[in-house]
Design a protein around this nucleic acid. Sequence first.
DNA 1: CCATTATATAACAATATGGTTATGGATGAA
DNA 2: TTCATCCATAACCATATTGTTATATAATGG
Lengths: 118, 118
Amino acid sequence: MVMDESVNPRLDRLFSALADSTRRSILMKLTNGDEGVMELAAPFDMSQPAISRHIKVLEAAGLVTRHRQGTHRMCRLAPDALGEIEPWLDIIADRYRSNYNRLDAVLETMKPSQQGDD
Amino acid sequence: MVMDESVNPRLDRLFSALADSTRRSILMKLTNGDEGVMELAAPFDMSQPAISRHIKVLEAAGLVTRHRQGTHRMCRLAPDALGEIEPWLDIIADRYRSNYNRLDAVLETMKPSQQGDD
DNA sequence: CCATTATATAACAATATGGTTATGGATGAA
DNA sequence: TTCATCCATAACCATATTGTTATATAATGG
């Protein structure tokens, strides 16, 4: 019995890609505009192949797209990439709130009769 | 030169914890209220120790808290747990939008004089 | 005390992740 | 063609993650 849509490989890849400081840094940098791999790699104390693989992970997660531009392979932040996360956050938040409301109602029911029980 | 606050172990742990369907399922289940480990484990085709460790990961990420209740160790969704993600999403989204605005401006500037250069 | 139930921990194996160096392929310039 | 630059891939290693089974610990009840 699947209780929700939590079994979601796309979301797995998205969150997994975001779970690395280097990759989040790369994304932040890309908000300033497209950049090549070498420029992206520059600030990091890490080899170019390492950065290449981080970019590959971001690409696989749908967070980054690429296109050739001369000898450069430009990286671009995918427009609606992070948008997939928000619905999930909203679902959690909504369900959580509605549960708290129910809990409040229960507590309200109990209050007149007795209190002091923890 | 650190260009942003992306080097953030807390965020690492948060995203990493969310990058697993089983753990997201557990979180969803907890929006219905507190539950013990056995109840949480029930829907999964997985051993109890496996679920115990998933819960431990969620706890370490600050997504879940626990308290004893008789022989049960009840799991509870941490109230503001996911709240830490939203600011980061907002920063990314804001920077991305402002960049797009700048890009639009540049394109607007280029349009009257010339186009066709890629 | 002993048994039961709930949960954690230990020990282990398989696979994933993230880094390295070395090298290969693609593009543009001379 | 030849060279330099940009980037990807291969091979490799160390560590982390995720599952397993077996066992230990904690609380509760007879």
